[in-house]
């Protein structure tokens, strides 16, 4: 539980070969966690880059971006997972 709270609600991936560096996502992002990067890509565009933290997963940058797949937004899903108290190897031995 504590682990999940530390996580950002969202994550952002930018395809630097598809991004044309128009900057609309930078303008659109409500928490302002996108900036144009320093490096030029293969086509000479200074492409969008996620600052690394603070994404809320709202998806506005995706809608503002004119390229179909330049931005992918991910959102957190908390799953309950059964975790073995003992080591995996030991439990396998025990169940067999």
């Amino acid at each position: 539980m504590a682990n999940a709270e530390k996580q950002d609600r969202g994550q952002l991936r930018v395809d630097v070969e598809e991004c044309k560096g128009c900057g609309l996502c930078v303008e659109a992002c409500p928490p302002k966690v996108i900036a144009l990067g320093e490096r030029l890509n293969h086509y000479g565009y200074r492409t969008a880059a996620y600052k690394g933290t603070g994404c809320t997963g709202c998806g506005i940058c995706f809608m503002a971006c004119p390229e179909p797949g330049a931005i992918t937004v991910l959102r957190v899903v908390n799953r309950v997972r059964e975790v073995q108290a003992v080591s995996v190897g030991a439990s396998e031995c025990a169940s067999s």
Partner: peptide
């Protein structure tokens, strides 16, 4: 055996 919340990410957009 116990259960724990694990954060995973799924593509939303």
């Amino acid at each position: 055996m116990s259960s724990e919340m694990v954060a995973e990410y799924e593509v939303s957009h």
